[in-house]
Computed example of a mutant assay.
Amino acid sequence: MEKPSMMMMGGRMTYEFDAAKGQAVGSVIKMGGGFLGVKLSVEEVITVHDPPRRKVWETCGQTQILIIGAYRMGFEIRPAKGGSHLRVFIDYNHLTTFFRGILSLCFASIYARWCVSQMASDARRAFLPRLKPVAD
């Protein structure tokens, strides 16, 4: 989300990391940016960090998000025949104010799928170049 995208309508988010850089339980990541002139901000805390198998984070404090409310997101990697199986997930609440609530009901599932898809694509790009073809 650091790069402008269609899902963000050309907007982008900036990231601010604490000393642990999101790599330890309790570490905090702050994000800020904008979407169609609306200021966005969210703070996340790492709740599970078991490298390289599992990482989970969730929102904390007051969030200024347009489409989804508080969320919990993460990934799990487990061995599978011929490689690994990656599971990316997001659990979220819908927003409750009138205007944002309508947006949330209409677009939250689309946005959540996009977030999960982005994470899976990033993992694929990060790991596929390192994979070597398996000889038959």
Rank of each mutant, 00 (worst) to 15 (best):
G82I: 00
T97R: 05
S84C: 06
K3N: 09
Q62D: 15
F127D: 02
S109R: 08
R54W: 07
K81S: 12
M31S: 13
R87V: 05
S27Q: 04
G11I: 14
M73S: 13
D91G: 06
A80R: 04
K21G: 02
G33A: 01
T47H: 07
T63I: 11
G69W: 00
L128H: 14
S5Q: 04
I46C: 09
M31C: 09
L66K: 08
P129Y: 08
A123Q: 03
R53G: 06
V42R: 01
F89I: 00
G22C: 08
A126W: 04
F99I: 13
M73L: 14
M119T: 05
D91S: 06
G74V: 02
F17R: 14
K55F: 03
M6G: 01
G82V: 01
L95P: 01
M8G: 00
E76T: 02
Q62L: 13
P51Q: 14
V88R: 00
T63H: 10
G26D: 02
Y15S: 06
F98S: 05
Q64K: 15
F107M: 09
G83K: 10
E76L: 00
E44V: 04
R100K: 15
M6L: 13
V56H: 05
A24H: 04
S5D: 07
V28C: 12
F35R: 13
I68Q: 08
V88E: 02
K3I: 02
P129G: 04
A126P: 04
I102M: 15
G101H: 04
K81D: 14
H94S: 05
N93D: 13
P4E: 10
A112M: 02
S5T: 12
Y71K: 07
P129F: 09
S5V: 08
H94P: 10
M13K: 09
F17H: 12
D122W: 05
R124K: 13
Q118W: 14
I77A: 05
E44A: 05
G69S: 07
T47G: 12
M73W: 09
E44C: 10
R124L: 05
T96M: 12
L40S: 05
L36Y: 01
W57P: 01
H85Y: 08
G33Y: 00
R124D: 09
R72P: 03
T96Q: 15
G22N: 03
R54Q: 13
R12Q: 15
E58M: 14
V56I: 04
Y71F: 15
L95H: 00
G33T: 01
K39W: 07
H94C: 05
M73K: 10
M8A: 12
